[in-house]
């Protein structure tokens, strides 16, 4: 899967989980850029992304995400 496809799907997950139609993610987006993205909803986002792509992040990966791009890279690596 191409990175922009993954990004688009991740964007859908964020819109649904955070209940905000206006979210527009880029690879550089961080939690600071999205109002509803706090430490509590972060858990929800991780679980929702895992379900969407039917993957499991390792704890190391979760800790290493600096931005949405990192998350997309990890998803692509897992999808192989």
């Amino acid at each position: 899967m191409e990175k922009n496809e993954v990004l688009a799907l991740v964007n859908e997950v964020f819109i649904d989980a955070l209940d905000n139609e206006d979210i527009k993610l880029t690879e550089a987006t961080t939690a600071n850029d999205v109002e509803e993205w706090d430490s509590l909803s972060h858990i929800q986002l991780i679980v929702a992304v895992e379900k969407k792509f039917k993957i499991r992040f390792t704890s190391g990966e979760i800790h290493g995400f600096k931005n949405v791009g990192d998350m997309c890279d990890a998803i692509i690596a897992k999808l192989g």
């Binding site: 858990i43 704890s59 979760i62």
Partner: peptide, 16 residues
Amino acid sequence: FSPSLYINSNLTFSLD
């Protein structure tokens, strides 16, 4: 129970 959510976020019940 989700071990990774517990370790990363101290969540003791899984979201499901």
